[in-house]
């Protein structure tokens, strides 16, 4: 009886420890909403999302975050175009093709890339990439969509590569053996057996990589240029949502409409990353390859 009670106490302690992070998350969400929702007293939900003018400090102010939403999506889109092939293909190489000594070097180096502080990457974009882009393409500014997308891609690659690599690695050995036994070549095996089997894991990797790009703040604050206008070319500056929040929150008067509007922007951002995570979760469950049959 005493042993059982002890077990029960220990179990409860662990339960509460696990609960702490959930409670904290819940409180943050409550805070976010209670500070963000008041802005809808001065601007309708539709005008807030689809309004194309962001002039929070004018009289009268306009709180339209459509240019910011477009900015966020466009840099996420372009960075995904760059990061997905890079990330997935390097995962394929590491998991299936590379000899073990190369694998020993590549895997930790790619993971190290994930550990680079974003401000360092931002600084790189600002001081190295921006002048280079400006001179090479003879454009008015190097702080633009291309620059932000490149730097964000650099951040998303390690996420995509390491999760994809895990997915590829966990494809059962029997699949490969069966494929080879049927006379398939190595690349046929990778393309037609291993990749489809690991598809759910790779999709999850891609979506998590995109979620990282859309929520990233420092990089877009430093290299996206910060123009709150809907871009007309890929060399235009944009101001993604996190950059706007970071730049303006410090000076926005406490509990003013501007302050609430920034929190509401945070709410939208929270919904977007939540959607990405839910989709990732759904995909990883839905298309899961379960089990393998062996003799």
């Amino acid at each position: 009886m005493k042993r059982k009670q002890k077990e029960k106490i220990i179990k409860n302690i662990f339960f509460f420890i696990a609960l702490v992070s959930i409670i904290i998350l819940g409180l943050i969400v409550v805070f976010l909403f209670s500070e963000g929702i008041p802005v809808f007293k001065v601007v309708s939900f539709k005008d807030f999302i689809f309004g194309i003018e962001w002039y929070p400090t004018y009289d009268p102010p306009s709180f339209g975050i459509w240019p910011l939403i477009v900015g966020s999506f466009i840099v996420t889109f372009f960075s995904s175009i760059i990061a997905i092939p890079l990330g997935v293909l390097s995962a394929v190489y590491i998991a299936e093709i590379a000899p073990s000594f190369i694998k020993e070097i590549f895997k930790p180096v790619i993971e190290l890339l994930a550990g680079l502080p974003s401000v360092v990457l931002g600084f790189f974009g600002m001081a190295v990439l921006a002048p280079w882009l400006q001179e090479t393409f003879d454009i008015p500014t190097g702080l633009n969509i291309v620059n932000a997308s490149l730097v964000l891609a650099l951040m998303a690659v390690p996420t995509i590569a390491s999760i994809s690599e895990d997915a590829l690695y966990s494809v059962p050995q029997e699949f490969k053996e069966a494929s080879y036994a049927l006379g398939a070549t190595r690349f046929e095996t990778i393309g037609k057996v291993i990749m489809p089997a690991a598809l759910s894991g790779i999709s999850t990797a891609v979506i998590l990589g995109m979620a990282r790009a859309i929520g990233e703040t420092m990089v877009v604050l430093m290299v996206a240029g910060g123009a709150a206008a809907i871009p007309e070319s890929i060399f235009d500056s944009v101001r993604p949502m996190p950059a706007s929040i970071a730049a303006e929150m410090g000076e926005a008067p406490f509990r003013s409409d501007h302050y609430h509007a920034l929190f509401a922007t945070g709410m939208i951002l929270f919904f977007l990353t939540l959607c990405f995570n839910l989709v990732a979760d759904y995909v990883s469950h839905k298309f899961k390859e379960v089990g393998s049959a062996t003799l």
């Binding site: 004018y58 240019p67 235009d236």
Partner: peptide, 12 residues
């Protein structure tokens, strides 16, 4: 009091 062009770059 006129509005700055939305294309203006923003620095902090």
């Amino acid at each position: 009091k006129a509005k700055v062009t939305p294309k203006a770059q923003l620095q902090a």
